[in-house]
Simulated assay, not measured.
Amino acid sequence: MSLMASARSSVPSLHNARALSGLPDIDWRAPWFEAVAAHGQSALTCDDWRLALSTQAAAARVVTGQGQPLRFVAQETLPVATAYEAFIAATGGVPTRRNLHDFFNALIWLTFPRAKAALNARQARAIATDGVQATRGATRDAATLFDENAVLFACSEPSLGEALRGFDWHTLFVTRRADWGRTCEVQPFGHALLEKLVSPYKSVTAHAWIIDVPHDYFDAPPMHRRQWLDERIAPQLVSAPLSTRDFAPLPVLGIPGWWPANADPAFYRDASVFRPGRREKSAASAR
């Protein structure tokens, strides 16, 4: 399904095939759930979705940053005074509560396994070197932000990435609207972001990680595009410098095809959501 074709998400919500304790109904037809819907719906047909997702991880041979086979275990499995990331890297067990936040974390492990393993390896390495500090530090802050709230903004034309970084919402969403799905797209990564989007609201804002892609990227099926992105970003997440400044804010309900109301250009005039960039604000204050 293309980003533009996914506008049909405005139809009434689907209920889960089976209601499970701790999880509300999820509209799997919403475009932001496209990448995780198959894994999620399948798991929710089982009595124990942690076990179901562990089975999927084993079938796909998903491993942690230290090569341990991945599985999703009860939160109580995490020993007292043991760091979460270090435990995952060493044992392959991801402590998972029966809530939306951890459910989506598991789904992203299955969707972007190399990138998640890279983030886990980086976090575990930092803990091994520095221990658990009162504050994470700049690199771990950036890794955590990526893990929780990132989207991957794939674009084959640099001008679109420049528009995003420059807070040029009119260019990105109105003037260049037809380019979405052809020369740019967004793939959600952050599991906290997906949790928010179960009950979406206009101001939900992701941290976009801009990735240059070849023009033929958009000719590939969605699953192949995600695999390409996963392979591309994993090496960067292992060792490249990371900073919170590497991200660009992106109000996700402004993405064409993701929310019916954004078909009206006036949708983007809400400056409380689509905020002007620092340069624009500085220019305005100088006048």
Results as ranks from 00 to 15, higher is better:
R29I: 09
F173R: 00
G137Q: 09
T96K: 00
A117N: 05
P79W: 13
R8L: 15
K281I: 13
P241I: 15
P251R: 02
R269K: 10
P256L: 07
S156Y: 09
R275G: 02
R61E: 12
G181P: 02
R182W: 03
A286M: 13
P235E: 07
A17T: 12
F153N: 05
L3W: 05
H170W: 10
Q75I: 15
E195Y: 03
S21R: 06
T64S: 12
A220N: 04
I210Q: 00
I255A: 10
W228E: 11
A134C: 01
P235C: 05
S199L: 15
R182K: 15
A30E: 02
E148N: 13
P24V: 13
H39W: 15
F33S: 05
A83D: 14
E280L: 08
R18V: 14
E157M: 12
P69Y: 04
H191D: 09
S239H: 15
S285W: 07
L110T: 11
A286V: 07
S199F: 15
L70C: 02
F247V: 13
P251N: 07
P12Q: 08
N105C: 14
R122F: 15
P12A: 05
F72W: 04
P24H: 10
F112W: 14
D216Y: 04
V204W: 00
P276T: 04
A154W: 00
L160V: 05
A284R: 08
A90K: 02
Q68M: 14
L3M: 11
S54Q: 03
D147S: 05
A117I: 05
G92F: 12
L53T: 05
K202P: 04
F267T: 01
D219F: 07
I255Y: 03
G22V: 13
F167D: 04
S156G: 12
P31F: 09
Q133H: 14
A134N: 08
Q68Y: 07
D212P: 06
R177Y: 10
F112V: 03
A143C: 07
G40H: 06
N16I: 11
G131M: 13
L53Q: 07
A121G: 12
F72A: 02
V204N: 08
H224S: 13
P79D: 06
A143K: 06
R29N: 02
Y84C: 05
A121F: 08
A38N: 11
A248M: 07
F274G: 01
T64A: 03
G40P: 08
R279A: 10
D264G: 00
Q66I: 09
V198R: 06
A192K: 02
W32R: 08
L237D: 02
P241C: 12
C184Q: 11
F33N: 01
F146G: 12
R71H: 11
K196Q: 12
A74C: 08
